[in-house]
Amino acid sequence: MPITALASLADLTLSLSADFSWLTSLVETATGWVGLAVIFVYSFLIAFALPGVSEIVLAAPLDLGLSRGARLALIILVSGAGKAAGSVFAFHIGHQTKESGYFEKALARLPVDVMGWTERKAVTIAQDWGFAGLAAALCVPGFPDTLSIYAFSVLEDDYLKFAAASFVGSCGRLLVTLVGVEAVLAFL
């Protein structure tokens, strides 16, 4: 991927992340079967471009005629699929930028050694845990997905395992969030 294409992608990412409150509002009000498409697209974008957290999809008031449990299970599966697809896209971008060296050069100009710290942590987790480490990192509620996804994307080579780990981690994150919220509500 040429450097100009990467710069354009960076500009697109910044413009998307600059004001995506409309998308968050869309997810929070998503209803019906179209709401599932909104959840998929939001989860896809969260995986590679948007800052923020993916847990917001659990608040989507989908009115599908399903029980609460079935509705939440469907949201989790659709969000996990969207995040896995977005992760594969980020995985591809990560490999392209790794080969071009553009990303590393840009980070090297920062006063803080972001690349060194991230790479050391990601390498340690990847070496110790492999794809299970990616899935575990993605299970942490509130932690930016894109950091884990891009860190692992430059270290690993298997698209299918990467997508599977992203799916499992994304679904796990939403389940951890639901259990946490239910536990808090039980004590109120």
Rank of each mutant, 00 (worst) to 15 (best):
L62Y: 01
L178W: 06
W117N: 02
A122Q: 08
F143H: 05
L188M: 10
K161M: 06
L64W: 04
T177D: 05
L107S: 07
S54D: 08
S15T: 13
A165F: 05
D113H: 09
I39N: 00
E104Q: 11
K121H: 12
V57R: 05
L160K: 14
F162M: 12
V154S: 11
I76V: 15
I93K: 00
P2I: 02
L58S: 12
L36M: 04
G52F: 06
W33F: 10
T13N: 06
K98P: 02
A136Y: 00
F44E: 00
S100H: 01
A90R: 01
G32W: 03
L175N: 09
S8P: 02
L147E: 01
T24I: 15
L174F: 12
F48V: 00
F152I: 04
F187Y: 03
L175G: 10
Y150M: 09
D158R: 12
L23E: 05
V112W: 12
A122L: 12
E55L: 08
R71P: 02
F89I: 04
F89P: 09
A73D: 03
S87D: 11
A136R: 03
W117H: 04
S153P: 15
Y150G: 04
A135D: 03
S100V: 01
D145L: 11
A163W: 12
K161V: 03
S79R: 00
M115D: 04
P61V: 13
G35P: 01
L12Q: 11
L178T: 08
E182Y: 04
A37H: 05
V34Q: 07
A85M: 13
S67A: 15
G35H: 01
A47E: 13
K98H: 11
I39V: 15
G65Q: 14
A137L: 14
W129C: 05
S87Y: 12
R109P: 00
P144C: 06
F103N: 00
P2W: 02
M1R: 11
G82F: 10
D11G: 07
S166G: 15
D157Q: 09
L138I: 11
E28M: 14
G69R: 11
D157S: 12
T24V: 15
L14G: 09
E104K: 07
A84Y: 09
I3Q: 07
V114C: 02
V38E: 08
F143S: 06
D63V: 01
I125W: 09
F48L: 03
S166C: 10
D128A: 14
K121R: 14
A37G: 15
A164W: 07
K83T: 15
S67H: 13
F89Q: 08
L36V: 02
T97C: 05
G94V: 10
R109E: 05
A49C: 10
A59P: 02
H95R: 01
A126E: 12
L74G: 08
T124P: 02
S21I: 08
V168H: 12
A59C: 06
L185H: 10
L185I: 06
F40G: 04
K161C: 00
L160S: 12
T31D: 01
V112Q: 02
K83D: 03
E28K: 14
K105T: 03
F143L: 15
L62A: 00
